[in-house]
Design a protein around this nucleic acid. Structure first.
Lengths: 325, 325
DNA sequence: TCCACGAACGCAAACGATTGCGTGATGTGG
DNA sequence: CCACATCACGCAATCGTTTGCGTTCGTGGA
């Protein structure tokens, strides 16, 4: 490349940099033209070696086939892309061993920062990054003492509870997801606290812990429907889980809403387009992704960043409200 | 690191390589122990600079929030991970400009190969990689003259058609997805060909082209339901699109299966766990992902690789078959 | 006793970029 | 006409590895 342009490689480097200082305008033009002609790209990896920053950030998620995390990752990637960063994503399957292995693999690429979307209670990934001095941000799930961008899951649970209470439901079930994820825990805590406060505490056997996803929801829903007195409404801490539970309600011969109402969480695109549109608590997923990247970027640049707690909103639809269209 | 171990850096390099030749067994042990103690990782990027292969592969997908592509990507990443490769994924949103930009960004990381999951008719990405000498494989969507791992979409369409024909359906609708994607095109072609052969050709206005996803399915479904004589069955080339169409059927006051049957495609996890389980044509998504990586790996190693065409299977469920459980 | 041989390890170049510093050319003011 | 500032560019070190080759040393056989 330097040979073709008849100049020194340092000149090429300067000419191709976004602020070409110390190179004649004519030379800059000539070099850049030649670069596009030859289809030449600067090797980001080699530059990373020299400058010390790879412009690469890692993202840890439980799994990408979970629509919620995929949505967040998409917005992280979009924000990162426009800022000139490349993202590398890793499925950890919420498995500590896998997480360690994947994090090691990532770290050996010298990334500039990490966004953790699969934080678990008792998980050490965040501490390890802190200790190694790698900038990081938690997203979706929070952990005490670490920078995070999340929605207020307690409030979200309370919104769902108040909605069901206002519709007259007194005996309700909760599908709480994974207890080790702060999301499931806090959503169900917020929900139960509101029912407690209203004087209708949710009994423990009306709360079932499952994983996330449709299949888990179906199983948990079956369990609730098989209680001697089934609940008149169900709060599922995840939309896909709610869809599975809808199947359980139907399989039990009950009618949706009329016999058993149901509220989901996250308001994924699918919720509004279901045959029976699903009432859901909307958490600003794409906004969370964007904000988490911005927070990480500030950390990378050595600036201060504060945790963000977004406000969820309940979107009522046909699974709880009559005549909704 | 070399200083700590009191040996030369070349010795460290050799000791840490998976086949340590030319280094004493005792030295190897000592160096490796020290490495774990110090939390030292070899810099993959620097090694890439020296050896010329980055152990990095790129994956192009339309979008990760599409469950189908997320599933494929997950299995690609799993296969790549065990082979010591890291994957970088890019959402192209089926937009040519974005695709170009993302591909350029990827290429400047000097990746060892690319898996293209968003190939479009008339798309130049594959040709460009071919010309630049970057190993690549198409997955999910095929393109004439390029190495690909796909399922037989024509056959899949035919399976859906034969299923509906055997149930007595004669006037059917098709939701064909994106016409520029080979999947949507070939599935609907296979479907229509089978109805043609049976003597019940599908009229053009019973075929609607939409995008993919639930929202697009809802809109397309509404369109079919508003025909003067609505179809007695619908074939949607994608499960999520089918879910949207189920909403349209319900909104039109019709009953699922009894008034309008529906068949989806891909058999994603959700299909079996829907309130009304969805009949779907199963394409081996995870297998496709794995095989595409293996094909790419062969190409990277300079071996020969042949295109793979997997066989789909129809899974009958409640949206077409009475009394299914 | 001497030489050949192999094992273990050090030396240095190379990968492709970035960047502080030095140098030559050009222009300008006194 | 000279001194000096300015601009454009080359030089060389550097990042962390890998790898061919050379060197040292110990051992065994003739």
């Amino acid at each position: 490349m330097a040979r073709h342009a008849q100049v020194h490689v340092s000149t090429v480097s300067r000419a191709l940099s976004e602020d070409p200082v110390g190179v004649g305008t004519e030379t800059v033009r000539r070099v850049r033209e030649l670069a596009t002609m030859l289809g030449y790209h600067r090797d980001v990896g080699a530059a990373a070696l020299r400058t010390g920053n790879s412009r690469l950030i890692g993202v840890l998620v439980p799994r990408l086939t979970d629509l919620v995390l995929a949505t967040i990752y998409e917005s992280i990637d979009a924000a990162a892309g426009t800022a000139g960063y490349t993202t590398v994503v890793s499925n950890t399957l919420d498995d500590p061993l896998r997480r360690r292995a994947r994090l090691d693999a990532l770290l050996s690429r010298r990334l500039d920062g990490v966004i953790i979307g699969d934080s678990h209670i008792g998980d050490t990934a965040a501490f390890e990054l802190q200790q190694r001095g790698v900038p990081y941000v938690l997203v979706m799930r929070k952990l005490e003492g670490h920078l995070s961008v999340t929605t207020d899951d307690q409030l979200g649970g309370r919104l769902a509870a108040e909605h069901l209470l206002s519709l007259g439901h007194r005996r309700v079930g909760v599908i709480a997801g994974d207890l080790l994820a702060s999301t499931g825990l806090q959503r169900s805590q917020g929900f139960r606290a509101a029912f407690d406060a209203a004087g209708y505490p949710v009994e423990d056997h009306y709360v079932v812990n499952s994983g996330f996803g449709a299949r888990a929801g179906r199983i948990a829903g079956d369990q609730l429907m098989n209680l001697s007195i089934p609940p008149s409404a169900i709060f599922a801490v995840d939309d896909l889980t709610a869809v599975g539970a809808m199947g359980a309600i139907r399989a039990a011969g009950k009618r949706l809403r009329e016999d058993v109402a149901i509220v989901g969480y996250n308001d994924v695109d699918l919720a509004a387009n279901l045959p029976v549109p699903l009432t859901s608590v909307r958490s600003a997923l794409t906004e969370m992704g964007r904000l988490s990247f911005e927070a990480l970027q500030r950390r990378i640049n050595g600036e201060e960043a504060e945790s963000v707690l977004l406000k969820p909103v309940l979107i009522p639809r046909a699974t709880t409200v009559e005549g909704w269209e």
